[in-house]
Design a protein around this nucleic acid. Structure first.
Length: 211
DNA sequence: TGACCGATGAAT
DNA sequence: TTCATCGGTCAT
């Protein structure tokens, strides 16, 4: 459990430093940058999983043509994104992969933060089983790789990110640089595809390989 | 009810 | 760079 988290970051400390609901009521760009370096923690039946958030994207909602809620679009799939910040938006892509987002901002403002990549820290053997991989290479360095490693699917759609089962803990020592870049896979979004709304930890080996 | 499609991943 | 992919979504 302690292996990679480090001596000053026990599970009890992770619990103490949980990001609170009020934190997620701010805008997507701010949250996407702020949670880099933080720990994402899941308690699963198989054991505890924890990983460092190393790559995120901000989706700005109704005014962002890359967003599922562009122009106020509201469907059964995305309706949870209109809830107050702090719940989870999970959706299926390509008929087989699950994408994990955190709903942020206030009720009626459907901004989201997409978590693209993690650096695995705790429960790595469980993640390998979930991915059917024998090595740590490529285990969590992509949006649908890490969700599979964590066993994430529609079960947690709409659940709170501040809960007993899963939460985010802040990392007090952020000794890294943040790189801003264009978002991946949103070339259809003529208005906002060029905006720098993707963020990652400079030099981190677990950032996704896409561009 | 069914045509359509993608905030990907893996192979090349 | 290309391509398989397929369940779910949503307009009808």
């Amino acid at each position: 459990m302690m292996s990679k988290v480090g001596e000053n970051c026990s599970f009890n400390l992770l619990l103490k430093r949980t990001r609170k609901l009020s934190f997620f009521r701010r805008n997507a760009r701010f949250i996407a940058r702020s949670i880099l370096g933080d720990y994402l923690v899941f308690k699963t039946p198989e054991g505890i999983l924890a990983a460092r958030i190393v790559e995120t994207e901000a989706y700005l909602g109704v005014k962002d043509d890359a967003s599922h809620s562009y122009g106020g679009k509201l469907t059964p799939r995305n309706k949870v994104t209109y809830e107050p910040g702090g719940c989870v938006y999970v959706y299926l892509i390509y008929g087989k992969y699950w994408c994990f987002n955190i709903v942020v901002s206030r009720q009626g403002d459907p901004q989201t933060v997409f978590i693209r990549a993690l650096e695995p820290l705790v429960g790595i053997d469980i993640m390998k089983v979930n991915r059917n991989l024998s090595s740590e290479k490529g285990l969590t360095n992509g949006p649908c790789k890490w969700t599979k490693a964590f066993g994430i699917d529609k079960k947690i759609l709409g659940k709170s990110i501040v809960s007993r089962e899963f939460f985010i803990s802040y990392n007090r020592s952020k000794g890294f640089k943040v790189v801003s870049a264009k978002r991946i896979g949103v070339d259809y979004a003529n208005k906002s595809k060029a905006r720098f709304l993707r963020f990652y930890i400079k030099g981190n080996a677990f950032v996704s390989k896409g561009v």
